Simulated assay, not measured.
Amino acid sequence: MQLKLLISSLLLAISTVAMAAKPITEEEVLAAQKTWGEAIVAIGKAYVAKEDYKAVATKTVETLYGYHEGEVLFKPTKASQQQFRLTKEEAISYFISGVIPEDHGFAIQPWTNVRFENKDIIIDSDSAIAMGNYYFTDAKTDKEAKVEFTFGYKRGVDDNLLINLHHSSFPYTPTY
């Protein structure tokens, strides 16, 4: 009986280790950033084309952010009155306007390109944090807007990376 219990315990331990999430790689973080930038551009394109940009924004938040799997800390660039977006609906509002009055639709500006320049990426097996600058190319002026970012990632149950931390802000400009 003890041998059976020992074997059962070992099998459980082995299956638990086998089911553990695989470590996050730098390549996955870079791919997640590329996907996020393309999604922001796609929301704006759908808006300009008078397509269902709300559906594109909703899909973006549902697939790239981890709201459905736990907490997400989101502090968007153009937010001052309600600085944080802790729900899926608030995140969608920021990208296309909606439930928060100050939101004017960051993604429907629109932008033609988003490029990331990482200062560094820290990977801790099942999580990753990237920090640097990202640049948004304005569709109307073709000028780039520089924004500082910190993104945190975790692996979702579907094995894809999910954003669980998103902080961005314009660079500080001294007034003296």
Rank of each mutant, 00 (worst) to 15 (best):
Q33R: 08
A32Y: 03
I24Q: 01
K34Q: 14
V29L: 02
A13S: 07
A13I: 08
L10W: 01
A13N: 04
A31I: 09
I14T: 15
L12I: 11
I14A: 15
E28D: 06
A32K: 04
A18D: 07
I24C: 04
E26P: 01
S15Y: 05
V29I: 03
A21R: 13
K22E: 15
Q33I: 08
T16V: 15
L30F: 11
G37P: 00
G37C: 03
E28W: 02
S9Y: 05
E27S: 12
A18Y: 12
A32T: 02
V29G: 02
A39H: 01
A32R: 01
T25W: 02
E26L: 03
A31Y: 05
L11Y: 02
I14V: 15
L11A: 09
M19D: 06
E38W: 05
A21N: 12
V29C: 01
I40T: 12
M19L: 13
T25M: 03
I14G: 09
T16Y: 13
A21H: 11
L10F: 03
K22P: 06
A39Y: 03
K34S: 15
I24W: 00
A18I: 08
Q33K: 10
P23C: 04
A21D: 14
K22R: 15
E26G: 06
L12Q: 10
M19C: 10
A21M: 11
S9G: 12
E26V: 01
E26W: 01
P23I: 02
K22H: 12
A31M: 11
E38V: 07
P23N: 09
E28G: 00
A13H: 01
G37H: 00
T35E: 08
W36I: 11
A31L: 12
A39E: 04
V29F: 02
L30Y: 06
A39V: 09
L10G: 11
A31V: 11
L10C: 14
G37F: 02
I14P: 08
E27P: 01
I14L: 15
S9K: 07
I14W: 05
A20P: 07
L11N: 13
L30N: 15
L12D: 06
K22L: 11
L30E: 10
P23M: 04
T35K: 15
T25P: 06
L30T: 08
A21V: 10
A32P: 08
E26I: 00
W36S: 06
L30A: 08
E27Q: 10
E27F: 10
T25N: 06
A18G: 10
V17I: 14
A31S: 10
K34A: 13
T35G: 04
A31D: 05
G37L: 04
L12Y: 07
A21P: 09
A32F: 03
E27A: 12
V29M: 05
E28M: 01
A20N: 09
P23G: 05
A18L: 14
T35Y: 08
T25K: 02
